[in-house]
Simulated assay, not measured.
Amino acid sequence: MSGDGDLLCPSVTPETEGAVLFGVVSRVAGRPKVDWLEAPTPVTPEILALTGDTPPAQVLRFAAKCQESFCAHFDGVDCRLVGRLVAALPPVAHEQFPCAIRGDCRWFWQEGLRACERCSQIATYEDHPEASLREAARPYARE
């Protein structure tokens, strides 16, 4: 990692400049479960077309450079989204799994493995998110 300015957000939309695909979301008992790719893959129209009528951010996980002050979840120092996810969600992964972006992931650098333990249950886009996810995803209120 070469500094905070190079940290990646692990929950961006595929339209984000420089986005890479690093996970595939499936559903287990109606809940998201992410399977990780061995290496990040640049986003292409062909990859996005594989999702058909389903929004890509509902079934794929993308990462890109953290937008920091341009993001509704950034408070000037930290990502409030990952802090809320750690507080709101139970851990689902209890072993360190391979992750192609962990070394540069803002969530990991901020919350450590507590973020990783919850990351595999996150789909960037949900049609009907649970109340805890809806609350965690609310924008940070700047004063």
Score class of each variant (00 low, 15 high):
2 S>L: 13
4 D>V: 11
4 D>L: 14
5 G>R: 15
5 G>T: 12
6 D>F: 08
6 D>G: 15
7 L>T: 06
8 L>C: 07
8 L>E: 04
8 L>M: 11
9 C>H: 02
10 P>C: 07
12 V>L: 05
13 T>Q: 09
13 T>L: 13
14 P>V: 02
15 E>R: 08
15 E>P: 00
17 E>Y: 00
17 E>N: 04
17 E>A: 15
17 E>I: 01
18 G>C: 07
18 G>F: 02
23 G>Q: 07
23 G>S: 06
23 G>D: 06
25 V>P: 00
26 S>L: 08
26 S>T: 14
26 S>G: 10
28 V>K: 09
29 A>Y: 10
30 G>D: 10
31 R>P: 00
31 R>C: 04
34 V>W: 06
35 D>K: 09
35 D>S: 10
36 W>H: 08
36 W>V: 05
36 W>Y: 12
37 L>N: 03
37 L>C: 10
39 A>N: 08
39 A>M: 10
40 P>Q: 09
41 T>F: 01
42 P>C: 06
43 V>P: 03
45 P>K: 07
47 I>A: 06
47 I>W: 00
48 L>V: 09
48 L>Y: 01
48 L>G: 01
48 L>C: 01
50 L>F: 03
51 T>E: 00
51 T>F: 11
52 G>M: 07
52 G>I: 11
57 A>L: 04
57 A>Y: 02
57 A>N: 03
57 A>M: 03
59 V>E: 03
59 V>M: 01
61 R>E: 06
62 F>A: 05
62 F>E: 01
63 A>T: 07
64 A>F: 01
65 K>S: 13
65 K>H: 14
66 C>S: 09
66 C>V: 05
67 Q>R: 04
69 S>T: 14
69 S>Y: 09
72 A>P: 10
73 H>V: 00
73 H>S: 03
73 H>K: 12
74 F>E: 04
75 D>F: 02
77 V>I: 12
78 D>H: 12
78 D>G: 06
79 C>P: 10
80 R>N: 06
81 L>R: 15
82 V>C: 12
83 G>N: 14
83 G>R: 12
83 G>T: 10
83 G>H: 10
86 V>G: 07
87 A>D: 13
88 A>S: 14
88 A>H: 12
90 P>C: 05
90 P>K: 07
91 P>M: 09
91 P>R: 15
93 A>F: 09
93 A>W: 06
95 E>C: 02
96 Q>G: 08
99 C>I: 04
99 C>Q: 01
100 A>K: 05
100 A>E: 03
100 A>W: 03
101 I>N: 03
101 I>Y: 01
102 R>C: 00
103 G>V: 04
103 G>P: 02
104 D>H: 08
106 R>W: 13
106 R>H: 15
108 F>S: 02
110 Q>P: 05
110 Q>D: 13
112 G>D: 09
113 L>E: 12
114 R>Q: 15
115 A>E: 07
116 C>D: 04
118 R>E: 11
119 C>W: 05
119 C>M: 11
120 S>E: 04
121 Q>L: 05
121 Q>R: 04
121 Q>M: 11
125 Y>V: 10
126 E>T: 11
128 H>D: 09
129 P>N: 04
131 A>D: 12
134 R>D: 11
135 E>L: 13
135 E>Q: 14
136 A>V: 10
136 A>N: 08
137 A>W: 13
138 R>F: 02
138 R>H: 05
138 R>G: 08
139 P>V: 08
142 R>C: 05
142 R>Y: 07
143 E>K: 14
143 E>Q: 15
143 E>N: 13
